[in-house]
Amino acid sequence: MSSSLFLSQRSLYEDDYSCILRNPQNEFNYGLHYHDFYECVLYLGNAGIFRIEDQEYLIKRGDIVLIDMFKPHTLTYNKNYFYERFSLSINLSLLISFSTSRSNLLDVFHNCSDRLPVYHLSQEQLQKYLTLLDKYRKIKLENGKDILEKALIHQLLAYIYSDCYRGRHIDEKEAQHAQTIAALLKYINTHLNEEITLEQLAAEVNYSEYYVSRLFRKISGKTLTNYIQEKRIEEASCLIRGGLPINQAAEQVGFNNYSYFYKTFKKIIGCNPADYQARY
């Protein structure tokens, strides 16, 4: 993952999900990146080449792309074509809460990059998504908009489960692992500006420090320490881009030693905080 950029849920959207319609005019131009949440993208036009890790896929209208947590990916879009894509970002805890005993959404999202992550819809299948997106576009409520959005997301995820499920249920052990990771991510998000120790994380999920470390590395490909560092630096970079002084940004994400923050920022971002601030 060394050549890809980490983007955290905490710094991209405030709630536990995000919905956005994109096209070449407001496209997401971060290049190869990965994040600590799931993403589902429905393409309403021939968009270009989608890369997930070392695999590339030609994306067409009617394609659904499922993106696993911590999997590097990017879209190289065709600038000669206009397209739209609807992107749903959703954190692990919310995905689990939307699941049922009969329809576990982890069946399609968990390790989706290890299977074929691109599903092509028939015209009949696509039409129900288009009808749902039309409802999404027309939301004009002064109050309760978020409630209606979540209802539409529920419906969208039901469609995705119906169209993308391929007959393999996640086993009980994998489901338990997902619950543990969700609890760890939630704790880290909530306490990011505080000192976070492995002992605290292990106590939060009632497992040994060794077990928690090994499980997190198995799922994410990185250590808990590295993840927390990346998450703090990524959020600090957002705060700096937003105009917050560097020392305040460092304190706000849990760094009390400025020289250590400076060194860690340069290692992860590739330049020091002052140069980064000047760039933006």
Rank of each mutant, 00 (worst) to 15 (best):
E142Y: 04
S220H: 06
N29L: 14
G45C: 08
R232S: 03
V118L: 12
D16E: 10
Q179W: 03
C40Y: 00
L126P: 04
E230K: 11
D275S: 15
L116D: 14
L198D: 11
L7R: 13
A203F: 04
S208M: 04
I181H: 04
E230N: 09
A175N: 12
E194F: 09
I49W: 02
T76R: 12
R241S: 09
E204L: 02
R102Y: 09
D54R: 08
S162N: 14
I228T: 10
A250N: 03
Y258L: 15
G243I: 04
F255C: 04
A274E: 13
T264K: 06
S122K: 09
F82E: 13
N46Y: 06
C271H: 03
K173Q: 13
N29A: 12
R214F: 03
E53L: 08
I170Q: 04
I196E: 03
G221S: 07
Q200C: 05
A249I: 01
L185G: 03
N78H: 10
N23W: 01
P72K: 05
R61Q: 14
E194K: 14
D16G: 06
Y13Q: 01
C164E: 05
V212H: 06
A175E: 11
A47G: 06
K135A: 10
N78T: 11
A178C: 13
E199W: 01
Y161P: 04
S18V: 04
F261L: 06
S11G: 13
S103E: 15
Q155W: 01
Y210N: 14
D68Q: 11
D63W: 02
S8W: 02
T131E: 14
I268R: 00
R115V: 11
Y207N: 11
P273D: 07
R137I: 08
A151L: 13
I228E: 00
G243N: 02
E251D: 06
I196F: 06
K267E: 15
L141C: 02
S113C: 10
